[in-house]
Design a protein around this nucleic acid. Structure first.
Length: 199
DNA sequence: GTCGTCAACCAGACGG
DNA sequence: CCGTCTGGTTGACGAC
């Protein structure tokens, strides 16, 4: 499987450092190219260094790695192809991007979590809109029922208006007391989720 | 693997 | 301008 997108050679590595990162970042928000130092801090450290970076003895304040635009792009491309990596793919990608496999792994974990979060937020929004739409339809149905009751009260016919009810199956307003379930011919709009109704 | 969280870093708003 | 505050993004980590 091709985990590495086409036309990608090894990347030159950059990392932002607190004193040199005053210009707008390129990978988020608006703005131009961010200032970067050409340092090899992203580079695979020895296992000792690795240990020291994570939780070694007196724990030096961890410096945040900033992926370059190109690294982000390649990771995104890989993610689009596959949301998880096997160890071989992880190794290959890490070598190619000159990052530690652990960094690749963490990036994919975060990426999965954040796309899931985004998805959940979208579903939540959708359900809220649907709820609003159903509420609106419900209100309109109540109005219809009231109108029909008023019509019945006004007429001299037999059925008490209060017996009007909605047939859940055929979605028509019926008079419940009539043995034959006589249908008052008022078809009701079907309940349709908002996204289907909006075009 | 996921989840919750921390922390570095950034942009933008705001007051002086 | 400049310093500060605030909120968003994202790399990293520990717990499970």
């Amino acid at each position: 499987m091709a985990i590495l997108p086409e036309n990608s050679s090894k990347l030159d590595l950059t990392i932002s450092t607190p004193g040199f990162s005053c210009s707008p970042r390129s990978d988020e928000g608006s703005g131009g190219e961010r200032e970067q130092l050409k340092l090899d801090m992203n580079r695979l450290p020895s296992s000792d260094e690795d240990e020291e970076l994570s939780h070694g003895g007196s724990a030096p304040p961890r410096k945040k790695l900033r992926l370059t635009k190109e690294q982000s792009r390649l990771l995104e491309d890989s993610f689009r192809q596959n949301h998880t990596l096997n160890p071989k793919q992880k190794e290959t990608l890490a070598e190619h991007l000159m990052l530690r496999p652990r960094q690749i792994e963490v990036w994919f974990q975060n990426r999965r979590a954040r796309s899931k979060l985004k998805q959940t937020e979208m579903e939540c929004e959708y359900l809220k809109r649907w709820f609003g739409s159903l509420t609106e339809q419900n209100n309109m149905l109540h109005i219809q029922v009231e109108e029909l009751r008023a019509m019945k009260v006004g007429s001299s016919t037999m059925t008490p208006a209060s017996t009007l009810t909605m047939c859940p199956r055929c979605e028509r307003v019926t008079t419940a007391v009539i043995p034959s379930m006589a249908v008052v011919d008022v078809p009701v709009k079907k309940m349709i989720p908002p996204q289907e109704r909006e075009h």
